[in-house]
């Protein structure tokens, strides 16, 4: 059994705990042991904190990584933003001895040391590269007959310089994982488009970013899908809470269910929508849940 330390980040535990519990449930079924990374903080958010001050960003990120090093485990994220921050910080510090020394001077003050012994993993690339599509297919007990709009999000695949996940414009690994559940990944216009939330933009210019996600939702609706499946709680929030904000501000209603991959896989493993927190979105998912119960399988 493989073991990973489970880094929660902010939005999953503090807004969408369904993603947290679903990850625990599906990883257990796949023989991957997760141990909570106790005392971890915000990653911190890459676009915002890298924008403010690089030393701050690096010292907070490296503290989180050292917690994982102290447990002797690689660190698992379920969020593209956390992945972007932590994987970049980890690689920078492993490569740059002078930078590592600077950061360790700060970490010394709180009794930690960055050693560079562990890797940072994202649940999607981990499932694809370490668990594998075939093993996931075998773990599926109730194949899900849904048409899915896959949303990769940006920081899972970009910048490609250190990701090694192939094309950033036409990747397929996430679609393969989605189809392993029995679902169909439906192509849609401008599929790789950003949700608009990152870089502090959602905080700075909410309405403009809502127009961005509105474009995305238009394309998803045009493709006739049953739900969106994402890999990041921040995209998840922009796609889900964003729909309620668009309704309020611009009077347009979408009602598209948004699931994190861990939730889709959980359904295919036989967990109920309630056990996975699919009923806890800000958009009302009750019709979708009825359909799942009625056997979208």
């Amino acid at each position: 059994m493989s073991k990973l330390s489970f880094f929660l980040g902010c939005i999953a535990p503090n807004r969408y705990p369904g993603i947290e519990i679903s990850t625990k449930k599906v990883m257990e079924k796949l023989d991957v042991e997760l141990e909570d990374l106790e005392g971890a903080s915000c990653c911190p958010a890459p676009g915002v904190f890298k924008s403010f001050d690089k030393t701050t960003w690096l010292s907070m990120a490296s503290r989180n990584i050292t917690l994982s090093e102290e447990m002797g485990d690689d660190l698992l994220t379920i969020c593209n933003g956390c992945f972007g921050s932590l994987v970049d910080a980890n690689l920078m510090l492993k490569k740059d001895a002078a930078l590592k020394e600077d950061v360790n001077k700060i970490l010394f003050e709180i009794g930690h040391e960055f050693k560079g012994t562990q890797d940072v993993r994202h649940i999607i690339e981990y499932l694809y590269q370490e668990v594998g599509v075939e093993k996931i297919k075998k773990a599926v007990t109730t194949p899900i007959d849904l048409k899915v709009a896959v949303h990769y999000g940006c920081h899972l695949v970009k910048p490609t310089r250190e990701r090694h996940l192939g094309s950033a414009e036409n990747p397929t690994f996430f679609d393969e994982l989605v189809e392993a559940t029995g679902a169909t990944s439906v192509d849609y216009e401008d599929k790789m488009a950003c949700c608009g939330a990152g870089g502090g933009a959602r905080t700075a210019v909410l309405d403009t970013t809502l127009h961005m996600v509105s474009n995305k939702l238009d394309h998803v609706i045009a493709a006739g899908v049953d739900c969106i499946v994402d890999a990041c709680p921040f995209c998840h929030l922009q796609l889900d809470v964003g729909q309620t904000e668009i309704k309020k501000k611009f009077g347009k209603e979408y009602g598209v269910p948004v699931l994190h991959y861990s939730q889709l896989l959980g359904l295919a493993m036989g967990f109920t929508p309630e056990e996975l927190g699919i009923d806890l979105n800000f958009v009302d998912n009750s019709k979708f849940i009825e359909r799942i119960r009625g056997g979208a399988k």
Partner: peptide, 17 residues
């Protein structure tokens, strides 16, 4: 959650850095 939210010493570490 079992993050800094549950561990005041961990939050102190973050504040210090």
């Amino acid at each position: 959650p079992p993050t800094v939210h549950s561990f005041p010493d961990a939050l102190d570490e973050v504040k210090k850095i």
